[in-house]
Design a binder for these strands. Sequence first.
DNA 1: GTGACTTTGTGCGCGCCTTCACAAGGACGT
DNA 2: ACGTCCTTGTGAAGGCGCGCACAAAGTCAC
Lengths: 224, 224
Amino acid sequence: MSADPSTRRGIPDATVARLPEYLRALHSFSDDGIASVSSEDLAVATGVGSAKVRKDLSYLGSYGIRGVGYDVDHLAYQISFALGLTHEWAVAIVGMGNLGRALAAYRGFATKGFRIVGLLDQDTRLHGQVVAGLPVRPMADLAGLVGEGLAIGVIATPAESAQDVCDQLVSVGVRSILNFAPTVLATPPSVVVRKVDLSTELQILAFHEQRKAGRAVTLAEVSS
Amino acid sequence: MSADPSTRRGIPDATVARLPEYLRALHSFSDDGIASVSSEDLAVATGVGSAKVRKDLSYLGSYGIRGVGYDVDHLAYQISFALGLTHEWAVAIVGMGNLGRALAAYRGFATKGFRIVGLLDQDTRLHGQVVAGLPVRPMADLAGLVGEGLAIGVIATPAESAQDVCDQLVSVGVRSILNFAPTVLATPPSVVVRKVDLSTELQILAFHEQRKAGRAVTLAEVSS
DNA sequence: GTGACTTTGTGCGCGCCTTCACAAGGACGT
DNA sequence: ACGTCCTTGTGAAGGCGCGCACAAAGTCAC
């Protein structure tokens, strides 16, 4: 069928990465009682450029009305649907250190279509301890959680154990992983891994900061 | 002169984003006592593709030896220099909620050329409380920190106060910001903002997970 | 009903990034 | 000293995403 190839297929990765931002802006508009927005409104709210907004949204279908704009609630639903947020996704967090606890306590998950169904750690001393209303469980409980619909694993362990934890997640069938550990994870191609790394981000900032500091500093450093 | 335009200028953003990964791999090789690596070795360690590795490194200069590879320590230094990590950068964290505390306690900063020089919060009840060995200070202390060399600000506040905090950072002269709050920040063009957002990452994973789940699930959902 | 106005959806050109493929260059054994 | 082998560095091609600019389309006022 050539009529629907873009309905769900072939949404560019760059567009997918922006859809959550549009969705957030739309929820904000909706909360303010605004029923309709133009691509320019969305552009201002997200800092993206109105042409890009329109092109991104066109990949989902033609949900705008020419001369008027987009219906806020309807567009929000369409984006949610495209992202697969029309039902809840079960998430497990592995690694109950400082970061893992902060993630467990983060309220942004529940409101966005994600539900934390398990907190896991390899340290037996933590088992049974309650964090953010959920008990910390041993890694052996993973298989059971997958049976209950677990789809996404979050790795918040130290770098040393990240690959081990990753292997366990993959072996029980988890195919989507969000990795906070500063390591590159080896996985089968069918598994999607996204990585968030604090020091990488800071290093990129340092590069730009250094460029802004200008030639003077660089030269002084070279001559020393 | 056409010989030096790429010495420090014009390193592509995509390359800059990968340099920290190479650097981490090189440190790992160095720890293992490996003195020389090929682009293929680096490719395997970072999952990047050897041709891309070579092209990325060529933007920094010709630091490889044909037939042999790259000297691990020398290349690590060159990357550090290009990223501006040959001296320490002073970092302040604003917002001492769960996430802010986890960031403050994160040990990855110090070892990578960053030093936390201040923890700030708008809540007066937190002032003086010690987190990770540093006292929580009021926002008014920002100006003083800039005088002591503060270059990078990390925003770990709720979304509501993020823009306010950002404005304060910018007004005292901070030009590099790492934003963990789920909001788009408005800043002058001279300020570089990088954003890390947990729910955005999860939503992108959800999209891919949904695609992998295949047509069956989608159709079932539509018919319901 | 008609005209003017507003905003969407998109065709096209441009520039950046990736990938391939190979010549240039250097080490090492004999 | 010389040939072989290995790995770098890079030219060129292809693909992807961005932004402009405009035609299509629908609303609103009168």
